[in-house]
Design a binder for these strands. Sequence first.
DNA 1: TTAAGTGCAAAGGCTTTGCAGCATA
DNA 2: TATGCTGCAAAGCCTTTGCACTTAA
Lengths: 147, 147
Amino acid sequence: MMKRELNNSQTIQMQGHFLTTQRRLLLELIRDSEGHLDAKELYQRARARDESIGPATVYRSLNLFKELGLVDEMRLGKLRCYYEIKKSSEHQHLVCQGCGKVIEFQNPHFQELIKAVQREQGFKITRAELCLEGYCEHCEQEEKGDD
Amino acid sequence: MMKRELNNSQTIQMQGHFLTTQRRLLLELIRDSEGHLDAKELYQRARARDESIGPATVYRSLNLFKELGLVDEMRLGKLRCYYEIKKSSEHQHLVCQGCGKVIEFQNPHFQELIKAVQREQGFKITRAELCLEGYCEHCEQEEKGDD
DNA sequence: TTAAGTGCAAAGGCTTTGCAGCATA
DNA sequence: TATGCTGCAAAGCCTTTGCACTTAA
């Protein structure tokens, strides 16, 4: 298990806010999770590594990270928000309803779609999020078995 | 202002559950809103027409309607859930961040995209929801003015 | 050093649940 | 009429806020 330290660029990105032990931990956890954690889960993982961290710090940090543009907030599956370190390249998410696995993907049709809607509806689109749910190959097999 | 009554097909769709005064009112409100109400807003509108209705009834009814497949639940904009009477044809939503207007649209690229992802990721997709946010022509103008 | 950040606990929203009375099929 | 539904109130979550203490720059 790699445990890279957050580097100086992270400090710079804090834009004057302190990069505290707690914030560093939270950023590490978000990054290491490959981006599919909700606030509650993040709190639990943080707690496992720092007994004294409180939920308030988690929520405050998430809000700060969002504000600074360090993490993206996504609504996948049910109603929960998931967080991930902001990436330069756009990608969308696919959630397996069987095992909860989250897959990231990119597809040229997506950009096509955005452009088309922008043109046809006369909207300037600022945020586009695609929520796909379904069953991965493995869970699809199991589903069939259960019927 | 048209105020069509819910017809018998609605009764049938209740699948054995009572079509009570409250449920009829809620379904009417959801339908008349053209589908972009969250639970709180629905409660307020219901309250305006029936002083005595409580939030519990609204939430219970929404859960029932979802269960029966009478309404669709969508996550648009912030984190709120919006409800609309289920329609046969698929459509997606576009929210204006300026005025809150919700536009429904369909675009062939969307189906293309779903098919492509299904094929490329080996997923069986069961739910697909596209969340677009931006500024409509009118609000885009105002934005420019404010800068 | 000192302003910003933290933990704790309490408060705030929204949603669900338990229960006695009411209304629909 | 009898079960299911409702309203009320209380409880449950998740998230935010206030305050005194701590800590990073």
